[in-house]
Nucleic acid binder design. Structure first.
Length: 210
DNA sequence: GCGACAG
DNA sequence: ATCTTGTCGC
């Protein structure tokens, strides 16, 4: 797949993104998705499913793969998507929501990793990135404070303070959820700066790198 | 032409 | 993403 084809694929799938929440959506099981990289082109995709209330881990999956697409800002999904989908397919506990390590709508073509994974699995998804894509209004210092994430004059997500006094994370809609609900779901997963979903999938994947 | 640019 | 110890603070 060439970068040009990848862009075309994003533009083809982008109209399928749904930015509203099903009134009946109950998030009981949340999945965290992350990929770790070795020195060569090997990678490990890790998915962890947590009980959203107790934050207990109820399922997990690990898949070894190869990076066959370079890291290109804006095309990040094409590097991690194949292995992440493989890992999701081996889960025993079906997640109600996917929490991705990266952007959703906060993307140059409004189709970041979280949107891509959400559309392909048809599951609600949110993107939680450690760094912003556009500029953002600094949120207040208290836990739960938010500020707009703006790109090209549009509000594409929110800077969310998940812990008092620490750098915010950047939340954007992936699929089948609205921004308010996305932020609320992310906040309740946060004991530390990053959601437990990403912390646990990250450490699980890293542990399998050896 | 120059800088920006998730992980 | 990854390379990486100690150290400051609650």
């Amino acid at each position: 797949m060439t970068p040009e084809e990848a862009v075309a694929e994003q533009e083809r799938l982008r109209p399928r993104v749904v930015t509203t929440t099903d009134p009946d959506l109950v998030v009981r099981h949340v999945a965290g998705l992350d990929v770790s990289y070795a020195d060569d082109d090997r990678l490990v995709a890790a998915v962890v499913v947590l009980d959203a209330d107790s934050l207990e881990t109820v399922d997990s999956a690990v898949v070894h793969g190869r990076a066959d697409f370079p890291y290109v800002p804006g095309l990040f999904a094409f590097r991690e998507l194949p292995s992440l989908l493989d890992a999701l397919a081996t889960l025993t506990v079906p997640p109600d929501l996917l929490v991705c390590d990266g952007q959703g709508l906060a993307h140059p073509r409004r189709f970041g990793l979280a949107c891509h994974v959400g559309v392909l699995t048809d599951l609600p998804s949110v993107g939680v990135a450690k760094t912003p894509m556009g500029r953002f209004d600094p949120p207040g210092e208290e836990r739960g404070a938010v500020g707009d994430l703006v790109d090209d004059g549009e509000v594409v997500g929110r800077a969310l303070r998940t812990r008092a006094g620490v750098k915010p994370v950047f939340v954007s809609v992936g699929h089948r959820i609205d921004l308010d609900r996305a932020c609320a779901e992310v906040l309740r997963l946060c004991v530390h700066r990053l959601p437990e979903t990403t912390r646990r999938s990250d450490s699980l994947g890293r542990a399998h790198l050896r």
